[in-house]
Design a protein around this nucleic acid. Structure first.
Length: 262
DNA sequence: ATGGCTGGTAGAACCAGA
């Protein structure tokens, strides 16, 4: 059975509701995972999703910041949410699809400005989040797809300039090593690089601060979809939906879309 | 010229993102 799964850091689902609708109409994913919804569950803009046939909602939101959501045309069964920072922030929710696979939607902390846990606690929290995810992943035995904003660009070709970003949070060696341990803990397959082999350009985020994001293309690959080996084997197509970065009032991230034959 | 912008919330000479 073909299943199409999308993931998008939306940077406020209320501010972005019109382009989310456009994306659903044009792309027709079966399941949409959102990060940075920035809204409490009781005022989540659920009507648009229901109107378009996405009647199954699993929400883990909070006021102002963070927040994740899974909207689906297929039945979902929530199986849990982890607080991998142990500080109450809403950054994960997991569901099971009826075809059997688990789907985990995660928003890894950005980590602040200074890549030194001694002077910047947010950086330490980011590393702790990844380490706790790794312990969770160690024990995982079911076929799983984990998607979201990992806030780490692991490969040299995942940023516009490795040399200029090597000391910038999101591309530092210590973060990349932590992400590598997470990947090794379950033999996770990086679907982005399965379908777009390195060193081909594959950015998913461009700063708002550039007047024209296309002009110098200073992007990073911060968003990812990782699959258990047997789920990865069922993937038939994958893309980064770059045009969304030019839509009206865009998010600074663009969606990832993967098709499976499950 | 990688912070130059943006959203939420308050009503900011704010905070946070990455």
């Amino acid at each position: 059975m073909p299943v199409k799964i999308a993931s998008w850091n939306i940077n406020s689902v209320r501010a972005r509701i019109d382009i989310v609708e456009r994306f659903l109409r044009e792309e027709q994913p079966d399941v949409l995972c959102l990060q940075e919804t920035k809204v409490m569950d009781d005022i989540f803009p659920a009507d648009m999703f229901r109107r378009l046939g996405y009647g199954h909602h699993v929400l883990n939101g909070q006021r102002m910041h963070h927040g994740v959501a899974i909207l689906s045309r297929l039945p979902l069964h929530e199986h849990g949410r982890h607080d991998w920072q142990d500080n109450g922030e809403a950054r994960h929710v997991g569901v099971r699809l009826e075809c059997g696979i688990r789907l985990e939607n995660v928003y890894v902390p950005a980590g602040g400005d200074v890549p030194d846990a001694a002077v910047n606690p947010k950086f330490g929290q980011k590393l702790a989040f990844i380490e706790r995810m790794t312990r969770w992943s160690d024990d995982l035995r079911e076929p799983t797809l984990i998607v979201g904003d990992f806030n780490i660009a692991p490969l040299e070709c995942d940023v516009w300039s490795h040399k200029q970003l090597v000391d910038v949070v999101s591309h530092t060696p210590i973060e990349i090593e932590a992400l590598g341990r997470l990947q090794a803990s379950h033999d996770w397959v990086d679907l982005g690089r399965r379908f777009v082999p390195a060193p081909e350009r594959c950015f998913t985020w461009w700063s708002y601060r550039s007047k024209d994001w296309t002009a110098n293309d200073r992007g990073r690959r911060l968003d990812h979809m990782w699959a258990s080996p047997q789920v990865a084997a069922a993937a038939t197509a994958h893309k980064v939906h770059e045009p969304c970065r030019s839509w009206l009032k865009p998010s600074d991230h663009v969606p990832l879309v993967t098709e499976f034959d499950l």
